[in-house]
Amino acid sequence: MRASIATYYLHKGGCAAEEYEDAFAVCPELSQAGVPDVAKVRLAIADGASESVLAGAWARLLGKHFTLNVPGVFEQPLTFARHTVSATESFESALYDYVAERAAHGRPLRWYEQRKLDRGAYATLLAVGFFNPYEGDVLAPTDDRGWTAAAIGDSGFFQVRDGRLLVAFPMVRSAEFSTSPGLLNSRNRDVHLVAQHVRMRAGDVRPHDDIYLCTDAVAAWFLAEAERGGHPWKILNDLRSEGGPHFTDLITEERAAGRMRNDDATLIHVAVR
């Protein structure tokens, strides 16, 4: 089975493009991968909390960190949590460079930035690994290919099979979304605390499945559309088709109609073929 992967993103309305603070990462990188074997794919999506400083940088680091092919990361909450703590150590080092660079450019941190940095950066995280069970490293796949997803916060994973929504994870209803989702703090070194909060789920993959990872605004919209009896996956699949809508137009229209919250919007679509 091969994975045809497409990614889309748009910053929140009224903000500059460089203020986009979601992040996504795909391994193998799309530019190099062609259409990779699904079992070799790692995906991550993260939503930097806009109330923290350097949230976008933290989200990007998490995305990269969780698409490295590190054995055992998805085995259990504790192994996943250990990997998040190693991400916090990498971020601390990047932060040191950032502070030095600001000082070197005559823009040392102001008192309020320093206080905010002391509180750490926050982001949600959803990481997904696909596996071949005969190569190990999997929770409990039931078919010849499987996936494992790990989530902190409200970024969404959806799997559609035979025209119906098979899996919604970790949120299953649009009403579950709030303004205070679970977040991963860049200074949190408490492995057991992270392990307590991470949610994991595994499943199988079959040809013609479609899998979507999205940050909260798109995820809440997706579930609300499905609850109304709609087929949001068809709308998202159309983004790939010739003559189909552009992601920017779709999101702008849904925001304007009040069907989607005005927030950074990010989507990874995996078409399994």
């Binding site: 109330e51 400083v53 350097l54 102001r110 309020y112 930035e113 206080r115 905010k116």
Partner: peptide, 10 residues
């Protein structure tokens, strides 16, 4: 102070 820190970005 809190409002300033809350609204601080890069």
């Amino acid at each position: 102070t809190e409002l300033s820190v809350k609204c601080a970005k890069e």
